[in-house]
Write a protein that binds this DNA or RNA. Structure first.
Lengths: 205, 205
DNA sequence: TGTACATCAGTGAACGCGCGTTCACTGATGTAC
DNA sequence: TGTACATCAGTGAACGCGCGTTCACTGATGTAC
């Protein structure tokens, strides 16, 4: 991507990518609009041709993150169909894989303090991601006897919580809360126990 | 607590408390040393009589948080003894209760980016809190047949992850990830399913 | 009880810094004729 | 193909701001004699 003299060519996306890099390295706090501009080879003022300001830039990074996140989970889900159980488990693994692979996006999405309701576009993207997981949960919960079946949205909320918790506490070079287990194992076993608790996995493994 | 003229009397603790208030309102990002000093009725420079700097102040807030956190969980645990199960569940509830009741501390502990290994004192406090949960898990896991018993530290890591995830995703006026369930219910049912998965609760409830 | 003095917790002014944002501008691009 | 002109993406200087931190200082406290 050679730099074109005065006009940049695709500054908007270049700024988003610079922001992601900075957020990943310096945290949501350390990220500054000015530095993102500098990394994109442009004056800070130029940013305002494409974004309303600092927050708006982070929001766009988050939005792109939610879209990728949804795609990644959907893809994992599709791949393991038609087994509802295998597909669901794959979706959980995809959650952690995303956090690992795209930390900048993940931070923008969940740790930047940007509300997912900031703009309709951002809310849509966030809902789409949540929808994937909820559909996977809904399908899987068909296999639970109706009288002891929890609502699918509660089910998926539990999985999201455990996944997010594993990422935050154990998958970052975290607040010293180191653990002897690999995050992937921790999540896999945690979800395993949970699904057994729902009667979806045979007690004898 | 009347303000004593030139000398403050207990500035150190007053600064910690101001910091906690600010962290709670403005997030770990928004908190500034200068404003904390101002709230304590003192020049920013005075802070340096008691702390090495901004980070050190946050670290002290976190340290105090971990101590309270440990006490609170320990207390909940003791109260429901000798039933290992009831005591364990109470410990989980205490986790969420702490996050609710002391958001400033919680943020300083888990969201401020301060490493728990920053100082030995902080690490001690953090370990003490983790120890409470791990002991509760260890005791409870005695009730699982040895051959299908997971390590207690993994067990407690799962519970920490789910608890933390519930706090972050559902108990804050969070990233729009609202949910129709009360965080307390979500955590209670989530832990319930998990314990059932370990065979610690009768499948028929 | 009174005085001298050491200790220490605060002041207040100053620093350099980088931030986000604004503004009038100018250089490059592309389109109409 | 060539020229005039509108559009638009960038510049660069300037702004006011509050930050964390330092420094020499001074006012209050408490202790020794």
């Amino acid at each position: 991507m050679p730099k074109r003299g005065y006009h940049h060519g695709n500054l908007r996306q270049a700024l988003v990518e610079a922001a992601l890099r900075l957020i990943e390295i310096k945290g949501p706090t350390g990220f500054t609009l000015s530095e993102a501009a500098k990394q994109a080879g442009v004056t800070p003022a130029a940013v305002y041709r494409h974004f309303e300001g600092r927050e708006d830039l982070i929001a766009e990074a988050a939005r792109q993150g939610f879209l990728m996140f949804a795609d990644l989970m959907q893809h994992a889900y599709d791949k393991y169909q038609p087994s509802a159980l295998a597909a669901f488990e794959a979706t959980g693994r995809a959650y952690l894989a995303f956090a690992r692979k795209h930390p900048g996006h993940y931070i923008a999405m969940f740790e930047s303090g940007i509300s997912a309701n900031r703009t309709p576009e951002l809310a849509d993207a966030a809902n789409r991601a949540r929808g994937v997981l909820e559909r996977a949960a809904a399908e899987l919960s068909q296999h639970i006897p109706a009288e002891k079946r929890p609502p699918a949205s509660m089910f998926s909320a539990h999985i999201m919580a455990m996944s997010h918790g594993v990422v935050e506490l154990f998958a970052r070079n975290a607040p010293g809360t180191a653990s002897p287990y690999a995050p992937e194992d921790l999540l896999e076993t945690g979800i395993g126990v949970y699904l057994r608790g729902l009667g979806l996995i045979d007690p004898d493994d």
